[in-house]
Every structure is written in structure tokens, then in C-alpha cells.
Design a protein around this nucleic acid. Structure first.
Length: 549
RNA sequence: GACUCAUUAGCUCAGCUGGUAGAGCAAUUCACUUUUAAUGAAUGGGCCCAUGGUUCGAAUCCAUGAUGAGUCACCA
């Protein structure tokens, strides 16, 4: 049982006692009181009263919040309560409350973790803290689980992620990070709206995964009996909207990639993608700089921000370095090596990187870039002029057919944004998809793109010359809040299941097998539409298994 | 996916070269009417992550596994 812990049992007993004496531990009609910080701000003037007793009984306040600390000293007590705004101190004594309430209820049945409402008037304590002198106390919500230790708080990284609400209660700076995240997302949205972009919502479940190189999550639509892919990028849908006549659109939402997790990767992450008709990739670089200026100015951030050991200078305009040049000047790879596939492969091998010789020069250069350049890009830097063959959706440069009108923005060695002039030649697009499919066949690269005929068809009706860009919101927030793990900017980061084996096994034995064929791979099963039990998603495979039995 | 580290009371942590468990906070009881992690006294609280192995004896040593963190690899 989840509540069989001794501490929880103690608290449940208190909850029952409250009910016995007619106090509902979970009352409904409670109004939120004055925010704690507002209470403190409005009574600052008490501090300057010359009198020995700084008090104003004519002022009346109601505060609501969670008890974080309680100091009981016989017939009087102090408590710190916290609400969304901050912490305020309460004072209550036996003689100021209804007779018996202090001794029998406050001291015995109220405790740290409970949410209470306090009515009273402000005064200043001997140690100079503005405090609410309570004349009435009401229980708002009983907490039957105790809070973690009051001084050290919740330190266990795992518990902090799994029980984020506890992390937020105990570690106030966590809340600050997420308030900042919300602010950034809101400002990004406002920035694009102010620039006359239209916010849209495109499908999260795609019949063909596209718009990026990544392995998708697969799910099943029962009614249509088809596979669906959680989107890896909204790109191809947003560009269909440009074809349809929307000339500036953006979408801020989740993308899903079925890949490894680490401190910069979560299986679901947030991106903004925006598409802008009659613009080119250099317009994107300018508007991205304008976005950073807007964020920094509106939030009031210094242009030089610490990031761990680093200091990052966000002063615009950002540096621009062409792809090949970055490999030679920043990566320190000789040009004759960087432009020769055979030499580049052996150079990589000498540095411990194995690459598939079937790959084209562009892919090999991408390896050179990833190995020797990326981690060195600390200050915001645009890497421009990408090899065309690693840019299947970007427009070819008019001047040089081997490079794409594309850039990526790097900060602190991480890719933050990716933008390009969009390819709008439907026949060229078809050929590029085909080349990707061939790569997939030749190298088994299951992240290469699929052929999306419907998208090519959309292009065939004519898409205006368009520029489009994606910015990783999680990483952006990491940079601006000096957080080094994506999990610290995600409210609920992805975690492995925590149930120990012993608890999982009985469930699997009893429930998690197909009722028809006895198949026991959980990922192949779906719950019965009516009644209990599980059945195979793939009906044909199920029949086959059943007959083989 | 590879390597390194961690996992002991509700929480934060000790626990030596193997001898069956300790503190602070929290809880319970008592004292205390201006405290700031309040204080003082007493009491209760443990499948030492799991499973094997070595051993007379394992929280401690070894193996395997689980979860988390960090480095690297892949990706945004």
C-alpha cells in the first residue's frame, strides 16, 4: 500500500481527528489571500515607526500558503508559509485564537507541509521581520506525506526529476528557472506575432516521418489500422501552408525523436519553426539576431552571460563562418584534406573516427565538422554554406551548386538553430528525397529521410521562395538560465520506469500477454476495447502465432 | 551503446583493513508567549537497491542486474 509508511499513518490519524472535531481537512470554498510578497511590501512602512512596538491593528490581511517551517514555543508559535510569490512569517499565540484552538488543533494537528489560511494584522518582531499576527487560522489542505528535510531540502537528482512538484516546493530556484522558461517562450511567441507571423498547429502524428534526420516513435491508429509516426519536425507541413498562401507562419511545439537521452537530449523537446515567404537565409540570420536582442532587452539580461566555466558574449551581430572555412580555420584541418574524400577518411581514422566509405564528401565533411569544430564554437556563431548533400531540404546556392543556402547557429558548442532558403523546385526535391532513400539502402542509415510524395506534390503547385528556421527552445533556455542539463529546463523529463522487477513481473504474467496467441512483447500489445486483457496490435502476426501453436 | 561514480531511517548524510547500524532534521511525549534551520529532555523508527557468490560471519569483498549522475559516442 502506498500509504503504509509510519509518517504518513501519523498524519492520516491527524486528518481523521480533524474530521472528528468537525474540521474538514480538504475544504472547498477557500479564497486565495494576499500574496506573501505583497503583504511584505505593503507593510514596509511599519519598520520606520519610532515606537518600540511596531504594529498596525487597523490593517487586516488574509494570507494563504504552505507551512514550510514551524517553531512552537509553548504558548506562542512562528510559522513560515510560502505561496507562489514567496515566503511570509506568521505569529500565533494561545490567547489570540479561539479558546482551545491553539493547544488542541494548531499544536497537535497542524504541521509542516499543510496549507493554511491566516487572518490577522501586521507587526514587526523584535528581530525586525514583518509578520502577520494571526487572529484566525483555517486549514486549507492537509498534507499526509511529510516534506523532505527543511534545511538540505531535496537533493536526490532522481527524486527531483520524478517528483518535480516536491523539487519545486523545496528548491525555490527550480521554480525560477521554469518561470524564466515560460517567459522566454512567451516572448518568442510575441516577437514573431509582432513581426506578423501567424501561429499555427500542424499534425503531431505523421503518416510519413519527415523534416529531419531522426528515428521516429511509432504508434498505431486502431480505427484506420495504420501506423502513425510522432512527428520529428513540423517542417513539411509548415511549408505546405506557404504553398497554400500563408506568407509567414510559426509553430512552437514538441517534436519526438526515438534516440538516446543525455544532458542535451530528451525524447520530446520543444522547437519553434518559422517559415517566411520572399525571404532568404541571410534574412533569417538577421531576424534571429533581432530575436536575441529582443529577449535580452525585454528580460533585462547582460549581453555577456556565464555558462558554467564559459562566458558567452551574445552581442549582435553574431560571427559568420562558412562551413568549409570553419573546418580549416577553427578545426585546424588542412584544406587539401577537407576537400578530398579519401584523405579526409584517413585523417578521421587517424583521429579515432570510423566513417563509412560509401558516404559522399558532404557527409565526410560533416564528420570533420562534428569532430573538430562544433565543440569550439562558444560565442554565438553562424556556420554558413552547408554541403548540399547533407541538406536535402535546402535550396542550392545560385553561385555554387555544391553548397546550400543554409546556416546553423552554435552557442557553447551546441546547435541552437538551423535555417535555410527552402528548396521549392519540386523535381529537385523529388531527386533529393530519392538520394536520401538510396543512402538509406546503401548504408542502412535508418535516420535518412523517407520519400514524401504528398509534399513533392504540394511543391508542384508552386511555393514562393521561402526561408525557414528551427530554434531549439530547450537549449535556448539552457543557455539563458545557465543550466547544463536539459532535464533541468524540462518540468517532467523522460525517466526510465522505476518499478523493481518483482513488482513488474506479476503484472506481466497476469495481464500482459495476448489473450489469443499468448504473445508477451508489451510493445506489440494493445488493451482490449471492451473488458479486460491485452491483444496483439498486429492481427495477422497474431493469427500466425496462434496457428503455429 | 561504452566507461566511471552513487544507491544505508520519511529527508540530508556518516559507517575504517569484513564482526548483523549511527547522527542531524522530521515524527511521538514533555517544558517553553517575539522565534529565524528556535531551544532543552526522553522515546520510537532500517528487506543497508536486487539476486547470486566468497566467508564461521557481508552494508562493507566479488559477479550480474536495476535506477540515477558524470564523461564519451549518436542526434537537435
Amino acid at each position: 500500500m502506498i500509504f503504509n509508511n509510519q509518517y504518513i499513518q501519523e498524519r492520516i490519524k491527524k486528518s481523521e481527528k480533524l474530521r472528528e472535531i468537525g474540521i474538514n481537512p480538504y475544504p472547498n470554498k477557500i479564497q486565495k489571500g494576499t500574496p506573501a510578497t505583497q503583504f511584505l511590501a505593503e507593510n514596509q512602512d511599519l519598520l520606520s515607526i519610532e515606537d518600540e512596538i511596531k504594529i498596525d491593528q487597523s490593517r487586516e490581511y488574509t494570507l494563504t500558503g504552505r507551512i514550510k517551517l514551524m517553531r512552537v514555543m509553548g504558548k506562542a508559535s512562528f510559522a513560515n508559509i510560502e505561496d507562489a510569490s514567496g515566503v511570509a512569517q506568521l505569529y500565533f499565540s494561545r490567547d489570540d485564537l479561539v479558546e482551545g484552538f491553539y493547544n488542541d488543533i494548531v499544536k497537535k494537528l497542524f504541521e509542516v507541509g499543510d496549507i493554511i489560511q491566516a487572518k490577522g494584522y501586521p507587526f514587526v518582531t523584535q528581530t525586525g521581520e514583518i509578520t502577520l499576527h494571526c487572529i484566525e487560522l483555517t486549514l486549507v489542505t492537509k498534507a499526509i506525506s511529510p516534506l523532505p528535510e527543511k534545511f538540505h531540502g531535496l537533493q536526490d537528482q532522481e527524486l527531483r526529476y520524478r517528483q518535480r512538484y516536491l523539487d519545486m516546493i523545496m528548491n525555490s530556484e527550480v521554480k525560477k528557472t521554469f518561470v524564466m522558461r515560460s517567459r522566454i517562450v512567451s516572448l518568442v511567441r510575441r516577437f514573431f506575432e509582432d513581426h506578423h507571423f501567424l501561429e499555427v498547429e500542424t499534425p503531431m502524428m505523421h503518416p510519413i516521418p519527415g523534416g529531419a534526420n531522426a528515428r521516429p516513435f511509432i504508434t498505431h491508429h486502431n480505427a484506420l489500422d495504420v501506423e502513425r509516426y510522432l512527428r520529428i519536425a513540423p517542417e513539411l507541413y509548415l511549408k505546405r501552408l506557404i504553398v497554400g498562401g500563408m506568407e509567414a507562419v510559426f509553430e512552437i511545439n514538441r517534436n519526438f525523436r526515438n534516440e538516446g537521452m543525455d544532458h542535451t537530449h530528451n525524447p520530446e523537446f520543444t522547437m519553434i519553426e518559422f517559415y517566411w515567404a520572399y525571404r532568404r537565409y541571410d534574412d533569417l540570420m538577421r531576424i534571429t539576431e533581432a530575436l536575441f536582442d529582443y529577449l535580452f532587452d525585454t528580460i533585462g539580461l547582460e549581453r555577456k552571460l556565464p555558462y558554467g566555466e564559459l562566458e558567452i558574449d551574445f552581442t549582435t551581430p553574431f560571427a559568420k563562418v562558412p562551413y568549409l572555412q570553419s573546418i580549416t580555420t577553427i578545426g585546424g584541418v588542412a584544406e587539401e584534406i577537407a576537400t578530398d574524400k579519401i584523405k579526409a577518411i584517413s585523417y578521421l581514422k587517424a583521429n579515432g573516427v570510423e566513417v563509412d566509405a560509401n558516404l559522399s564528401l558532404g557527409y565526410i565533411q560533416a564528420e570533420l565538422f562534428d569532430t573538430f569544430v562544433e565543440s569550439k564554437l562558444t560565442n554565438p556563431t553562424y556556420i554558413t554554406d552547408f554541403p548540399i548533400d547533407i541538406s536535402p531540404l535546402a535550396r542550392r546556392s545560385d553561385e555554387n551548386p555544391n553548397i546550400a543556402e543554409r546556416f546553423e547557429l552554435f552557442i557553447a558548442g551546441k546547435e541552437i538553430a538551423n535555417g535555410f532558403s527552402e528548396l521549392n523546385d519540386p523535381i529537385d526535391q523529388y531527386e533529393r528525397f530519392k538520394a536520401q532513400v538510396d543512402t538509406k539502402d546503401a548504408t542502412g542509415d535508418d535516420e535518412a529521410m523517407h520519400m514524401d510524395i504528398d509534399y513533392v506534390k504540394a511543391l508542384s503547385y508552386g511555393m514562393t521562395p521561402t526561408a525557414g528556421e528551427g530554434i531549439g527552445i530547450d537549449r535556448l533556455v539552457m543557455m539563458l538560465t545557465n543550466q547544463h542539463s536539459i532535464r533541468d529546463v524540462l518540468l517532467f523529463p523522460a525517466m526510465k520506469p522505476e518499478l523493481p522487477k518483482e513488482e513488474l513481473l506479476p503484472i506481466i504474467d497476469a495481464e500482459m500477454i495476448c489473450k489469443k496467441c499468448g504473445h508477451d512483447m508489451i510493445e506489440d500489445l494493445k488493451p482490449a476495447k471492451k473488458g479486460k486483457g491485452m491483444f496483439c496490435i498486429d492481427v495477422n502476426a497474431c493469427k500466425e502465432r496462434a496457428t503455429n501453436k
